[in-house]
Design a protein around this nucleic acid. Structure first.
Lengths: 244, 244
DNA sequence: CTACGACTGTGATTCTATTCACAGTAGCTG
DNA sequence: CAGCTACTGTGAATAGAATCACAGTCGTAG
């Protein structure tokens, strides 16, 4: 939403490669493909056809093929896609073929959980440093990562060559934090704090509101508990006047 | 995908109320609207126009109006929408106007973080019970919630009248767990475990893969670091042969 | 060596979501 | 009380994503 501005004033107009514009939904699916492909690779599968892989990840074969085709030609006809190769290629597309340093802001309960989450390393991310404002936490080491005071983020971020950040702090002053972080070379931010912030141009920001997911699920559960998939309000409440 | 079948053979063909089909994206936005509306309500704002609210949440006024209109008529012309009323109405639509009991599976780092997360209660969710398989954890109380052994989930879930569940366990045997949970009256599951599972009919399942979000951000950061928004593969790697 | 079967990549099509734009109306002003 | 302003709700238009369906190709089998 905040990441979709970008006027089409692309300098290099005459490109050889397809260079299509790729939707975020495609990228999201790519991530799933890669996850499944790695499992397949571990199981020793070498090649797979589009409709088999599509079945495993829960999309249509056509969609899978189109997703992949946005990045060029992948598959060998009548042998399908090479599992290992394709997994590597997707990693390269996403920039996760080499481990990237990530900074964590906020060493509360969630922050600590993220620090000890094993899933990041094997997906190409390494939380290199943590930040907090709490004097109790600053200076300590959590799961192998030192916690610095937010005041020094500019220096520390550059020192560790951090390009991505995760926000798991208190909501107070979050926007100011985002601005500073973006100003220090961070290009992408994953925000767990349930507070709306916006990133300056050139920096991508992704919200992850856990409670919001629950709300969606609650809606789904409630709606098809009553009507099958039609949601309407009971006729008794058109939200009138009440203007104090 | 699995929730979009439903032929239009609606019994009550002559409905007064709109009863349109609502997309998940709309619901996701509703959740954001409500969050912002509650902030506004706390700040004492009583009414707001579509374009002001739209500006705050980052959508177009037209989209906001249409989202709301899928559920009936909300707004007072030339006074806009009543903040408090609308917030309540959205809660009612999502079924979060009354607190719902949620079960947590897996009391690892993430599970404990979720247990101590304060955001749930104020959004209408209460993690009532926790489950684990670890003998060290079963029987203990975490942040006020008792941890039961997964073996007894059927009894405990019914006892606490749980309709929603959060998965934060180990990936082993996850599908079996999902099946049992769904068989015990749970209608919606939020899955944090990075493993693909499917829910039986009538039960909704939502994936939340944190690493996947980072991958998306990594992609975005890498692509507009090179070309503005066009992503292509370097010409050197068409993923040929290599079939061992 | 040739003919067949099956798969990928992609133009064309359908379906869905978003935006535009305006009719209709509530409140305000003089 | 009449006229004006500015808003909502919604039909129509547009943009975008998913699917269909087939041309072209590769491997295989006889």
């Amino acid at each position: 939403m905040s990441t979709s501005e970008q006027t089409g004033t692309d300098a290099t107009t005459q490109q050889k490669r397809p260079a299509k514009r790729v939707s975020l939904q495609t990228v999201e699916r790519l991530s799933v493909y890669r996850k499944v492909l790695e499992e397949l690779d571990r199981d020793g599968v070498e090649n797979i056809h589009s409709h088999d892989l599509a079945g495993l990840v829960g999309v249509t074969p056509a969609q899978l093929r189109r997703d992949l085709a946005s990045f060029g030609t992948f598959g060998n006809i009548s042998r399908g896609y090479n599992v290992y190769q394709m997994s590597r290629t997707i990693s390269r597309i996403m920039g996760t073929d080499e481990t990237q340093s990530v900074a964590l802001f906020g060493v509360g309960d969630l922050g600590r959980a993220l620090l000890s989450y094993r899933g990041f390393e094997e997906r190409g991310f390494h939380i290199a440093v943590a930040f907090d404002v709490d004097g109790e936490k600053v200076g300590r080491v959590f799961a192998g990562r030192r916690c610095y005071h937010v005041d020094h983020l500019e220096t520390v971020l550059r020192e560790f060559d951090v390009r991505m950040a995760i926000l798991a702090s208190r909501p107070e002053g979050l926007q100011a934090l985002v601005d500073r972080v973006c100003g220090s070379g961070v290009q992408a931010i994953l925000n767990f704090v349930p507070k709306r912030v916006s990133a300056p141009g050139g920096c991508h920001l992704e919200e992850t509101d856990i409670a919001s997911k629950l709300e969606m699920l609650s809606f789904l559960a409630h709606t098809d508990a009553t009507a099958a998939h039609t949601a309407s309000l009971e006729p008794g409440e058109p939200a009138e006047g009440m203007t104090a």
